[in-house]
Every structure is written in structure tokens, then in C-alpha cells.
Amino acid sequence: MGPRDALASGRQPYKTQMMRSRSAYRWFNIVYVACMASWLLLRAVFMDRSWLLALVNTMAVYLFIPLPVLLFIGLIQLRKDSLGLLTLPALAFMLLYGELFLPRKAGAEPIQGPSIAVMSFNLHFRNDEMEGVAEAIRSASPGIVGFQELTAAHGNILGDLLSQDYPYRTPLVFAEDRRIGLFSRYPIMSVVGLTFARRQQAMRVKLEMEGQSVYVYVAHLSPTLISNVLDDSGPAYVSETYAWRAEEAASLAASVSMLNEPVILLCDCNFTDTSYAYSKLEAVLEDSFREAGWGFGHTVQPLGFPFRLQRIDFVWHSSDLVAIRAGVGPEGGSDHRPVVAFLKLRPPTAAEP
């Protein structure tokens, strides 16, 4: 065998390996795009009606993890056929999450009305780091703080630590150990407790803000606990909790729709923005983070996890307000990060003659 023959025989395994790699890449693309197309179709038709589909919808952001890797390989290999296939998941990502990564236009709509910073904070009922919670609140300096999983001990300690900052506080109106509550720099005019069918809680607080009445809801919707998903009754449990959450969101939407004044909802909603229950509130309120935040904005980090997993905490507002800025607040010893939004009241529209 001559030198040329030896060189050719040495190249043959390399060419074979490259062809196999390209074929594997192509077939992986086909399978991935087929799965994504199936999910998008099922979601459009059934949304959260199936327990398994409901879970997939909740974790939808993680379905896109392979996408940048596949796009990168397609680009360096100049695989036009594969890049064409990946157009579908790329467009789906842009539709679902693209606006969260666009630059925010500062000053696009100047608003002359009063401004207010608000925070929603699930403390975790076993959290004993109230000094850290108080510091997290002070660093964001919101005018209103809505709490979920606020125990009586939490309320008493935080009431002492923040008494100078928040002179107005709601009473602990619920008998259960995991209450909700609100601390405010603005006078509280009334408090109405709302209880859903599954004992999850909400309250409606009327505040006097800059001469304007504003209604602030604080809510904690039904959770779907991972430990219960994994036991024998998992499918039935998932179906129940997703249905409860959708009913609770619909009840809140109906309550909000009856009001003519500005509304703010501070909520540990226990759903993501790709869930059916999200659409119930989105029909009547604006998601502040979608409007003025940047990035995924994940707020929940189960104890022991190295990173935050999902955005399930929200600041919603009615069309009487506009979000100027929104983001995730500092850590305070809980498995949730607070979400903070800076809102402005729109000036009243002049009545037509």
C-alpha cells in the first residue's frame, strides 16, 4: 500500500464518523421539532385539561434548552435544512418569551401621575430569618408589601422591625397558620377577607394613596406540591390542584372586574405564564414583569436547589396604572424571592363634553 492509499484509508473512518454525526444531528432535530410541534398543538387545543400536559405547560421554558445548541451546530455546519426545521421552536420561543429579552423603551409613554413601589413576598411559614426579610424589604423600599405564608410570629416580629417604615398593617384575619397580610405606608380604609373553596386565601384592602382610592389584593393560590405529584395519586392530585387554581384565578378576575378604581394584585399564584390559570388573570390585569421586567424573572428556589426554577410570584395591576420597572428582589431566607414593581397612576381621563 502506497502513501496515498494509506492516507485515504486513514481519512475514511473520519468521513464515516462525520456522516454519522450529521445524520444523528439531523434525526435529533426532526424528533425535537416533532415533539415541540405536538406540544404546541396539544397546548392550543387542550391547554391544562390533561394532568401531564398541565405539568409540561408549567415547565415549558425548559423545553427550549436544546434549541440554542441545535442552532449553533446548524450554523457552524451550514445546515440549511436543519435550521429551517428549527424555525418552529425558535418562533415559539419568541412568541412566549421574546418580549422578556427586548430592551425596554425608557420614557416612551411619559406618565405624570403619582408613583408607587410594591412588593409581593412569600415568606415561607418556617422561615426564622425575619431580620433578613426586613433588610430585603428595606433595600427595595416598597410603599406596599403583600405577604403570603405570614404566621402570627412573623407578623409580630416584622411589625416591630418595620414599625417606623410601615405604620399601617392589616390584621391577621385568617385562623390558619399560613396567613396573608399587607404592610403599607398609605392609610388603610378597609380590609375584606376572601376565602376560596379550598381554604386558600385572598384579601382586598382599600388604600388612600395621593388622594386616590386604590384596591390592593393579596392572594395565595393553591400549590401543586412535588412530593404529592410523585405518589400513587399523582395524576388525580395534579388535575385537582390545577382546576382549583384556575377557579381561584377566575374568582379573583371576577372580583377585580367589579371595581372601577385602580387595582393591584400581589400574588403567589403558583402558576407560570404558560399555564391556563394565568390567562384568567391576564384577561383583566397587566403582568408588571411582562410589561417592565427583563429576563425570565424566576422567583421560586426550593430548598436545596442551586438555582431558581420558575416565576410564580406576580405583581398584577389594572389599566389605571402603568409599570415603569419590575424585577426580582433580594433574598430573605425564604424559598421565594420577592417580586418588586414600580407603578405609576395614570391621571384621570378628562370627561368628554
Rank of each mutant, 00 (worst) to 15 (best):
P3N: 13
R4Q: 13
R4Y: 14
G10C: 12
Q12L: 14
T16A: 14
Q17R: 14
M18F: 05
M19K: 15
R20K: 10
R22W: 13
S23P: 00
S23N: 14
A24G: 05
Y25W: 07
W27H: 11
Y32C: 06
A34C: 10
C35A: 10
M36G: 06
L41E: 00
L42V: 12
F46H: 09
M47F: 15
D48G: 03
D48Q: 10
L53T: 11
L53I: 05
T58Q: 13
A60Y: 10
A60E: 14
Y62C: 00
L63Q: 04
L67Q: 02
P68W: 02
L71G: 05
G74T: 04
K80S: 13
K80V: 15
A90T: 15
A92M: 09
F93C: 02
L95Y: 12
Y97V: 01
F101I: 07
L102F: 08
K105F: 15
A106W: 12
A106T: 15
G107W: 09
G107E: 10
E109C: 03
G113I: 00
P114N: 07
V118F: 06
V118N: 03
V118I: 12
M119V: 03
N122V: 06
F125A: 14
N127W: 02
M130D: 07
E135A: 10
I137P: 04
S141E: 09
G143L: 01
V145T: 07
Q148A: 15
A152K: 13
G155P: 00
N156S: 13
N156Q: 15
Y166T: 02
Y166R: 04
T170Y: 07
P171G: 09
L172T: 06
F174V: 12
A175G: 11
E176Q: 13
D177A: 15
F183S: 05
F183A: 09
S184V: 13
S190D: 14
V192G: 00
V192E: 12
G193E: 13
F196Q: 05
V205C: 02
K206Q: 07
L207C: 08
E208K: 12
M209E: 00
E210S: 12
V214H: 01
Y215N: 11
Y217D: 00
L221N: 05
L230Y: 12
L230P: 08
S233C: 03
A236W: 04
A243T: 12
A243F: 08
W244V: 05
E247L: 06
E248F: 06
A249P: 08
A254K: 09
A254T: 02
S255L: 11
V256I: 15
S257N: 03
N270P: 03
F271R: 02
T272S: 12
T272V: 11
T274V: 05
S275E: 13
Y276E: 15
Y276K: 03
Y278V: 07
A283R: 00
V284P: 01
S288V: 04
E291S: 14
A292Q: 08
W294Q: 08
G297M: 06
G297Y: 02
G304K: 06
P306T: 13
F307E: 06
I312F: 07
F314Q: 00
F314L: 04
V315E: 03
W316I: 02
H317E: 01
H317M: 03
V322H: 01
R325C: 01
V328G: 01
V328E: 01
G329A: 04
H336K: 06
H336P: 08
R337I: 00
V339Q: 01
V340F: 09
A341W: 10
L345D: 00
R346N: 10
A351G: 13
E352C: 14
P353S: 13
